[in-house]
């Protein structure tokens, strides 16, 4: 490898590390400073966001790496929160309007108050042009149905961490059938307690094993609906 390529690779590696350091800052000061410095340098806010997404993606990969897991749940929580802070800072500078690729209504099912996976998935979808309505945690089937009727989304996303709560997903899908809404909306489910088999068994259209996998599946739904 030429010296130039080695240097280029090293500088990219260092840049990614710097991004990760910013995203993993517990106090959240570095992300504010980072965004402000880049804005002051005249960088496009979308480019800043995309750059940070690279860091977030690297943390996600490090979390999933079976051979050498480099990042942990606490890293996902903090990087997700910092990414949200970045969006808050950057969004007032967003001038262009991105054409919405599709709409998603999302929530953590009843009995479950875990937010992390859903939050990361929401950020991933939004940063990729989806309009997301986040219903929060501990969401009952009535609210899911009400929002599907009200917002007519392309996709309904449900998340659960606890094994004791995953059965509620099936109840929501059954209710969609009863109310003749099932054909109008694709259903994607995800969460640590779930498997692909379970998702298929309850009649979901897809299982998102992580936020990136979920994004790819949502993109496919939208493509197929065109």
């Amino acid at each position: 490898m030429s010296n130039f390529l080695v240097l280029k690779r090293m500088s990219k590696k260092n840049e990614i590390r710097r991004l990760i350091e910013v995203l993993l800052d517990f106090k959240g000061d570095k992300i504010k400073e980072y965004c402000q410095n880049k804005l002051d340098q005249g960088m496009d806010p979308y480019d800043i966001f995309n750059e940070l997404s690279l860091g977030l993606d690297e943390i996600g990969k490090g979390f999933e790496d079976q051979k050498f897991q480099r990042y942990f749940t606490s890293d996902l929580i903090v990087s997700g929160k910092n990414m949200k802070k970045a969006v808050e800072i950057l969004k007032k500078y967003f001038k262009k309007t991105i054409k919405t690729r599709g709409s998603v209504v999302i929530g953590t099912v009843k009995g479950d108050v875990h937010d992390i996976g859903k939050m990361i998935f929401t950020i991933t979808l939004e940063s990729n042009g989806f309009k997301v309505t986040d219903l929060g945690v501990d969401v009952g089937k009535e609210l899911f149905i009400e929002k599907v009727k009200e917002e007519n989304p392309n996709i309904l996303g449900m998340s659960a961490l606890l094994t004791s709560t995953i059965s509620h997903m099936g109840e929501v899908i059954d209710q969609l059938e009863k109310e003749n809404l099932r054909e109008k909306v694709k259903v994607i489910v995800g969460g640590k307690a779930l498997t692909e088999d379970f998702a298929m068994k309850i009649g979901a259209d897809a299982f998102g094993k992580d936020s990136i996998d979920g994004l790819r599946k949502c993109e496919k739904f939208i493509e197929a609906q065109k």
């Binding site: 993993l24 517990f26 106090k27 990042y71 606490s74 890293d75 929580i77 903090v78």
Partner: peptide
């Protein structure tokens, strides 16, 4: 290492 440790230290 990381935010887990930082939270405790803080």
């Amino acid at each position: 290492r990381g935010p887990f440790g930082e939270q405790m230290i803080n």
